[in-house]
Design a protein around this nucleic acid. Structure first.
Length: 837
DNA sequence: CCGCTGGAACGAGCA
DNA sequence: TGTGCTCGTTCCAGC
């Protein structure tokens, strides 16, 4: 915002950014600008997730995103300057179990009026999440992810909206324009918090616009977004908005059924004069590569957030500002790659000043020296989140029946606070999830003490890690709250869409005091958790399978265990080429007599050609259209029949070039216990030229060599484009090699597992991540002939689904670690790894 | 009565 | 334009 609020900012060349920041910083300090009023100690303490926006001075994060850094400072200053910093240091960070000065009840504020006003509401509810600072950060990140078509589309829409005063389609749009252009100060982060809530009709219509008036307006514009918020449904819940909020979470009254999303319509977008400026902005931002025909989901309308000029504007406007800046900046200020700004500098250990905890989307290692934060028991892959209108659906469960267990190894001097929040599970940098919030579960069965807090706009649980419990804790107090898509997508600056964005990860963080007074921040994440009832019930989930390899001749039985399977399920093996084209695909024969709902036995099809080295292929379980499991890696071994591990291991050594290790063995000889791990990768591929964390690498299965081809995100997108028009696009997980024994990595797979479990698979994936081949996956059933289709014919859902699915096969920790590894400078990264070792 | 859980109806947008 | 499908959201019933 701040950045965008003045041309000066936008035009400020990078070289002068620092000076500008300092100047603004000083100003901010002197004026003691009002900051986001959140009854959150962390917030006050400076533990903000705002990152760039609020990142402490000196925090490299502050320079991650030029468009926001100024903003951050203003807020940050406040936090930093506050004495509360010490609260955090002494409590949350330094180990003491932090006792907030506020009452726990404060967490459940009358959500009412300002519930949707992230800037004004302290409501734990979710809606805040949408506008979370982190989210803003994410937005920045997202914004820079030009490989994300979804984001691109959203940007497109937003740009159009922003670029045109009139595109808002209604009073709100005009209002926004007026505020931004006629009264730029109105957008000052300093003033924003105090702006009248009325400026945020979409978030809290009641504050200025009554529901009636709102509804009255609504007919003037067709809701362009998918009204995921069943307006009609709510009528069942009777009377007024309040009556409609049976939410035990006190989430303020739900957004009125007549959601303001209609303030801007598709028509407005398209027909609006915004087109012109929008184009400019777009060009300034980057090639968005937005398929013209990409489905415009509700999220896309976000832009329209146009109408949303509420107090949270400044919070949400990171993205918006970026958009503007992106367009205008092109003329004045070349903005470096997002990632080069966004990632921690290589070689910097995860040590922070107690006064400047890392933002929630800041990548952190799970281990440093002898200290390690480890999720010993992973949660189940499916947990149905509850809506505000529902009662709790309980805490997250572990696959084993208990609850996730996390432990801090290497430190037990004093109690520490474990922070827990719900993060994303997509291919981008881990960040708080906009559509899900952690929810404190209470009840007699809950034994873990925890407190719910709000950091920025993200709810977190603060759980004590006690020495007497070996610094271990069972997380039985954490549920997942689903926020209505419509509520979140309308938030200004929100770039994510909720539709089919139903996978999350649980993120755990802990600050370990160091002798030098600094705080060592470690973070680990859970495996992806599917939170949608529908998907949870329909998507087949592969929990384990065995064997993990066999001869190219195939014909061996493969047992796949999981859920949502049936004898009608299909198991499809496939191989993708460098260009993403489907090289081979074949259905495995299902042995119905040996299959049931939780397991499916198939006969591995023979590989289509001879090979001198192991070939990595994928397979997935399909229950029909759009109901496919995540792809799993399977290896065809050259010319040898599947053997028991001992033999295989020996043979594998001969294939060292593949960095494939076969270890183990299981007691289960029946199905062949081999477990394969692509762990010995000798090269961590970090092209010095790349500044992108998510390197897209392509592997030639036939050569089974380590990935030698990497694509930048931009290249990836280009690839997608190229393929979209010329060949089937695909996305697949190709094995690549990454040192699993690396600094942040655990040793390869357990050799005792009779099957490769999902976790194992994910561990493997971890090693694969850097080599993850990311393009667009061909949908055998739904995209029979993508090769003849233009990209524009690939729907947003398709892209989203594809990316989500394939990336989802990677565990969160893997992704995190991956991201952590993907720093700009390879040598520095390696140095950092050595340090960690 | 409350928390939790499973199931399914409802309805808007999309193909 | 009509129809069926998808999927987010809400509601209900049972424990």
């Amino acid at each position: 915002m701040e950045v965008g609020e003045t041309d000066l900012d936008i035009k400020t060349p990078p070289s002068s950014t620092q000076a500008l920041l300092e100047q603004l910083l000083n100003q901010e300090l002197q004026s003691d600008p009002p900051c986001l009023q959140v009854t959150d100690d962390y917030q006050h303490a400076g533990y903000q997730s705002q990152g760039p926006y609020c990142g402490p001075q000196g925090n490299p994060r502050a320079f991650d995103c030029p468009s926001i850094q100024i903003t951050s400072i203003s807020h940050n200053i406040h936090a930093e300057a506050g004495s509360n910093l010490e609260v955090l240091a002494a409590g949350g960070a330094e180990g003491g179990y932090y006792e907030p000065s506020w009452q726990r009840d404060q967490l459940y504020l009358p959500l009412d009026a300002c519930y949707r006003d992230s800037a004004l509401s302290t409501s734990p509810c979710s809606s805040l999440s949408s506008r979370s600072w982190v989210s803003d950060l994410s937005s920045c990140e997202s914004f820079s992810h030009n490989n994300d078509d979804v984001e691109g589309e959203l940007r497109d829409a937003a740009l159009l909206a922003l670029g045109s005063p009139g595109c808002g389609g209604g009073a709100f749009g005009v209002e926004l324009w007026q505020q931004k252009y006629q009264h730029p100060l109105a957008f000052s982060p300093v003033l924003s918090p105090h702006q009248s809530p009325r400026q945020s009709p979409s978030h809290s219509p009641r504050t200025s616009i009554t529901e009636d008036t709102w509804q009255h307006r609504r007919p003037t514009s067709r809701p362009s977004s998918r009204p995921t918020s069943p307006c009609g449904k709510r009528r069942h819940s009777s009377a007024g908005p309040r009556a409609r909020s049976p939410s035990p979470h006190y989430s303020a009254s739900p957004t009125p059924g007549a959601s303001p999303r209609g303030s801007v319509t598709d028509d407005n977008w398209v027909g609006s004069p915004a087109s012109t400026s929008g184009a400019l902005l777009i060009s300034g931002c980057q090639e968005l590569n937005v398929p013209s025909k990409t489905r415009r989901t509700s999220g896309s309308n976000l832009g329209l957030l146009a109408g949303d000029t509420g107090p949270e504007s400044y919070l949400d406007s990171c993205r918006e500002e970026k958009q503007e800046q992106g367009g205008l900046a092109e003329l004045f200020l070349p903005v470096p790659s997002h990632f080069s700004w966004n990632k921690p500098k290589p070689g910097n250990p995860p040590l922070f000043s107690p006064l400047s905890p890392p933002p929630l989307d800041w990548p952190l290692p799970n281990q440093y020296n002898q200290t390690e934060l480890k999720l010993e028991v992973q949660p189940k892959g499916y947990h149905r989140a509850h809506y505000e209108t529902e009662g709790s659906r309980g805490s997250i469960k572990a696959a084993t029946g208990g609850h996730p267990v996390i432990r801090l190894n290497g430190y037990s001097e004093r109690p520490l606070s474990l922070l827990l929040f719900i993060g994303t599970a997509d291919d981008r940098v881990l960040r708080p999830h906009s559509f899900y919030q952690v929810h404190r579960v209470t009840g007699k069965t809950v034994t873990t003490i925890c407190q719910e807090k709000v950091m920025g706009c993200t709810k977190i649980l603060d759980v004590p890690l006690l020495p007497e419990n070996n610094m271990s804790v069972s997380i039985d107090c954490a549920g997942i709250l689903k926020l209505r898509n419509a509520d979140i997508e309308l938030k200004k600056g929100e770039t994510n869409i909720g539709r089919k964005n139903t996978r999350v990860r649980v993120v755990f963080r802990v600050a370990v005091p160091q002798q030098d007074g600094q705080m060592l921040w470690l973070q680990t994440t859970s495996v992806p958790i599917e939170c949608s009832q529908r998907w949870g019930q329909e998507l087949p989930q592969v929990e384990s399978f065995s064997p993990t390899s066999c001869s190219v001749e195939g014909e061996e039985e493969l047992l796949i265990s999981g859920s949502n399977m049936s004898v009608q399920s299909r198991v499809v093996f496939m191989e993708k080429g460098l260009d993403g084209r489907l090289l081979w695909e074949m259905d495995a024969r299902v042995l119905s007599e040996k299959s049931n709902d939780s397991r499916i036995v198939v006969v591995v099809p023979p590989y289509n050609k001879k090979t001198a080295s192991p070939v990595q292929v994928q397979f997935y379980v399909s229950n029909g259209k759009k109901r496919r499991s995540l792809t799993q890696s399977f290896t065809f071994l050259p010319g040898v029949r599947h053997q028991h591990a001992a033999d295989t291991a020996v043979k594998q050594e001969l294939w060292g070039a593949d960095h494939i290790l076969y270890q183990s063995q299981s007691q289960d000889g029946a199905l062949g216990p081999d477990v394969v791990s692509y762990a010995s990768c000798s090269h961590l591929h970090h092209p010095a030229s790349s500044t992108l964390p998510l390197q897209v690498s392509v592997m030639f299965p036939q050569t089974s060599s380590a990935p030698n081809h990497t694509l930048t995100s931009l290249q990836k997108q280009e690839l997608i484009h190229a393929q979209a028009s010329a060949s089937p696009v695909q996305i697949l997980s190709a094995p690549c090699s990454v040192p699993s024994g690396g600094p942040l990595r655990k040793p390869p797979l357990s050799s005792n597992d009779p099957f490769r479990t999902l976790g194992d698979s994910q561990k493997e994936s971890l090693a694969l991540i850097p080599g993850e081949l990311v393009s667009i996956k061909q949908e055998p059933e739904e995209q029979p002939n993508l090769g003849s289709l233009g990209l524009q014919e690939i729907t947003l859902d398709d892209v989203n689904e594809i990316i989500d699915r394939d990336i989802g096969s990677l565990s969160s920790s893997e992704l995190d670690q991956f991201h952590q590894y993907n720093w700009d400078d390879e040598s520095s990264t390696q140095a950092f790894c050595r340090d960690l070792q």
